[in-house]
Amino acid sequence: MTMNSKNKTVRGFRWQVACLIVFLFGFGFAGQGFAETLYVKKDGTKLQAADSAKSDVVATLNGGTAVQVVKKAGKFYEVTAPGGKKGWIFKFKLTAKAPAQSGGGGDVLGALGGQQKIAARESGSGSSIRGLSPISEKRAKTKGIPEENIKAVKQMESFKVSKEELDRFLKEGHLGEYGE
């Protein structure tokens, strides 16, 4: 083998290694770009430090927040929240459905897509649409339905359990994120 052909072989080998590195770099780049995106279903969803309901709460997320799935482990997904904060969320508190844009009520496209997305208007427990509607109360009175039944609906609407109480209930029953 001449000196010249030896140099060609070495250069060819280097070239192959360089190509491999570039190829792998492209592969990794794509992996970053195509991570699965899911959306938080409800306001106040806990982002936790580990895949356990007993771990620290890193942040609470609002309904509709888009998160990137990093890892899936049992009932928890490790996600990256907007701003880069990482943590774990109970998987059934996430959905693949993107939240609907507000104001989509009456148009045709909104109508056709209306049942597939979480309507922005009803999203969040802070909805202003609360209590028995005046039109419902008026109808009941017009129909002569006894007042106690109207009061019963109002009582039902005002009866609440706190987040802490629900959390204790789940923990005690080994349910939800407290399940094995």
Binding site: G105, A111, I135, R139, N149
Partner: peptide
């Protein structure tokens, strides 16, 4: 016919029916 019923209307309809259920 495809026009969706919004949450406010849904709540009014459901509230009236809830009174009926108790009754």
């Amino acid at each position: 016919a495809f026009q969706p019923i919004e949450y406010e209307e849904e709540k009014a309809i459901g509230g009236s029916l809830a009174v009926e259920v108790f009754n």
